[in-house]
Write a protein that binds this DNA or RNA. Structure first.
Lengths: 156, 156
DNA sequence: ACGGAATGAATGATGCGTCATGTAGGTTGA
DNA sequence: TCAACCTACATGACGCATCATTCATTCCGT
């Protein structure tokens, strides 16, 4: 190979703009959630999944699959959320290795209280800035990139 | 107000796809950098800025402006990078409160060694999946969102 | 039936990010 | 000129993310 293939100008600009958007949007959303509800963005993700699940109960490995988190991250995070009373752990009769994570009443109250302001922030920061074509383009771009990652992960 | 305005279906799908792309791309890039060069993505950003600066020297507040980091994050991070020998701190004669951060020889070597594989990973994960129109759309979307944030930060 | 491999999950160490706060030095205006 | 204020930067505490490791249980081939 005769040298590194760098990004061309369009790619360079797109990448820097993306990085800035990504960092700022994440920071804003995190701060808004923390300030208004005392939840982190990570907490929010966990609570959403549990709230959507029947009985607010999920096996950790299912949660892991949905969130695409590292197993140990999830385990640590659930531990902290449990200490704060947002979730609880139960034993799993079907598989003695396993466990259940269940949403507590406080956890459900927290997500229900947090959701409106959070959604509103997402819309204000992101979707109010984009026309419908751009929204579809964003989905298309993100889907393509994610599909590319998955193709790499498990080669044909 | 009569209730929360949720996201419509297009927005919902775009948002979930974006979140997944964001998380996965960041994770992959971080792991690649760490594995191949022992640098974090944050390290990489700092080193790029310093390498582009004359004499590899910058005032911390300038670095902060470029990276859009919190001041204390930068301070902590520079401390860790200094311990690892990637950067050094010098006093600033013009302003006794201030300081300079300077790229060490090891720091310059690290960024030069890391860049090719990193850029290659960015291209492989992102730009190889997108056609030129999508690249331009990504830049446009990101720019719009960032501009929206800035407009909020300092209202007219 | 049993030994090895795979699975579900927890833990300790360590680096990262934020908040609140501290401190020294500069700037401004009455 | 000097008090009030602002700016540049550092620090301690604490929650978060990752890696490596560990452990119990289940699965599976022989």
């Amino acid at each position: 190979m005769t040298g590194t293939r760098w990004l061309d100008d369009d790619q360079q600009r797109a990448w820097r703009a993306y990085l800035r958007m990504q960092a700022e949007v994440a920071a804003r959303l995190g701060r808004q959630l923390q300030a208004d509800s005392g939840l982190s963005f990570a907490d929010y993700g966990v609570l959403v999944q549990l709230a959507e699940a029947p009985d607010g109960r999920l096996r950790p490995f299912a949660l892991q699959r949905d969130l695409q988190w590292e197993q140990s991250r999830l385990s640590h995070h659930l531990g902290r959320m449990q200490r704060r009373g947002l979730v609880d752990r139960e034993e799993c009769p079907q598989d003695a290795r396993g466990a259940f994570v269940v949403l507590t009443a406080a956890g459900r109250a927290a997500i229900e209280a947090a959701a409106p302001a959070h959604v509103d922030t997402v819309r204000r920061l992101v979707f109010d800035q984009l026309d419908p074509d751009e929204v579809r383009a964003l989905e298309r771009i993100a889907t393509r990139v994610v599909d590319g990652l998955n193709a790499e992960r498990r080669p044909a």
